[in-house]
Design a protein around this nucleic acid. Structure first.
Lengths: 234, 234
DNA sequence: CGTCAGCTTGAAAATGCTCAATGGAAGTGG
DNA sequence: CCACTTCCATTGAGCATTTTCAAGCTGACG
């Protein structure tokens, strides 16, 4: 059986306006995400690398907008294994949860500044403020899309493909699309890609030997052959 | 730096009311999901096993509620590799997208019946119908939570842990929590867990040899030692 | 200049995959 | 009712990729 209905205008397009690619903030989009009509719960907060912003299971009273720096959101298993869900940069919302508790942990990757918002301030706003509702809905759908792409990568890509995809993501966010500046360690990359730190390192070295990338510094990747990278992305 | 704010009531609790565990529809919840005030776009549709309900990239004019049967949503890579995102049972919404296009493919696993809803009928409703907005928001957040759990499994679990988690998920949805009735093939399970069909089969056989489960029929798993299964779930 | 954290590299081991053959249940047609 | 076919699942053997374990290396910082 196949389903055919007459075409019609796309009603959720407004809601979808913010939906973007894998990384939450598309390269070149420099409009800061600013929940319309919602007032910060306090002054901008600063975090140092590896400092926890909120923890899985804690009461989710506050959500945040990243102003500067990079934040990682991750899940920990009992035995300490870690899966990083995403890296968040300027403009991204983190800690916006359905339940009463944060479902994951957020930590600063680099020095970070974040604007806090009170979750309970939303109630009044959501009822009256259409734009705000749409923004938050868009945020949820964008996160969902990102999570699904991530799942394909984790489940069905080889180490080389994972690393290539990661480099492309990073380069896509830099102003110069041919250089990826990494805020995160190899361990962070490994936990994002579902690999070990050694495999990440070896794969990067191999890509450099193959003249696909250059590694001028520890936290910098220069794309010499983006086409080859993209071909790995199948 | 640590963030402390005074406790407050939980504003999004209503929105979160539907948020559940890994599988979209929690075991024992028999209230059908019925988008309040939204009229179906037509009669109930029937699909046979492996029939496509909608395809990745098609215009997302319609979304569906599963009435009976099991649906899989999946992503395909260029070379045919497949990653199943989730299995959907009665009550679940599928095809509710942010963008203009379906971001994944939905196919019937078993014989299925689905109620179609017109996406553009939402516009008018969303503005006025608070309950509907909340339901759809809850749907998005629940899907997001599920996708994140899935990512941890794909990235950081061994084959045995993946299979154990899958059995627990399935058993959790059955009326008798000690029997998992599978609608899907081994290939479906493999593509859901990011494994091969052989590894799934071998792992199931091993669990049976270890007296953790019994395999009375091809599509049935009896839990003999649920504790052992759960311990694999770490 | 020494120390230390993070990164790279190597060798061995393990986990999961590929290829290939077998098994078994359901459906079909004689 | 029984062979035959077909589809799906299981099992085995060998192989590939990734992990593990164990050294070294490098650059930042005191």
């Amino acid at each position: 059986m196949s389903v055919q209905f007459a075409p019609a205008p796309h009603p959720l397009s407004a809601i979808a306006a913010h939906a973007a690619g894998s990384f939450a903030k598309p390269a070149g989009d420099h409009t800061p995400f600013r929940p319309s009509g919602l007032l910060p719960a306090g002054p901008v907060l600063e975090f140092s690398p590896d400092e926890q912003i909120f923890g899985q299971g804690e009461e989710a009273l506050i959500f945040f907008r990243v102003v500067t720096g990079t934040v990682r959101t991750c899940k920990f298993m009992n035995d300490g294994r870690r899966q990083i869900q995403a890296f968040h940069v300027a403009g991204e919302l983190i800690g916006f949860e359905a339940g009463d508790e944060y479902s994951l942990t957020a930590e600063a990757v680099s020095d970070c500044t974040l604007v806090p918002y009170r979750r309970n301030a939303l109630d009044a706003q959501l009822a009256t403020n259409e734009a705000l509702s749409q923004q938050l809905f868009a945020h949820a759908m964008r996160s969902l899309k990102q999570a699904r792409e991530h799942a394909v990568m984790l489940g069905r890509r080889t180490a080389a493909e994972k690393v290539a995809a990661f480099i492309i993501e990073c380069a896509g966010r830099s102003s110069d699309g041919r250089v990826a500046n990494l805020a995160m360690t190899r361990q962070d990359i490994a936990d994002y890609l579902g690999l070990t730190i050694e495999t990440v390192s070896r794969t990067l070295s191999q890509l450099e030997r193959d003249a696909v990338i250059e590694l001028p510094a520890l936290r910098q990747i220069r794309l010499k052959n983006p086409a080859a990278l993209r071909s790995l992305n199948s």
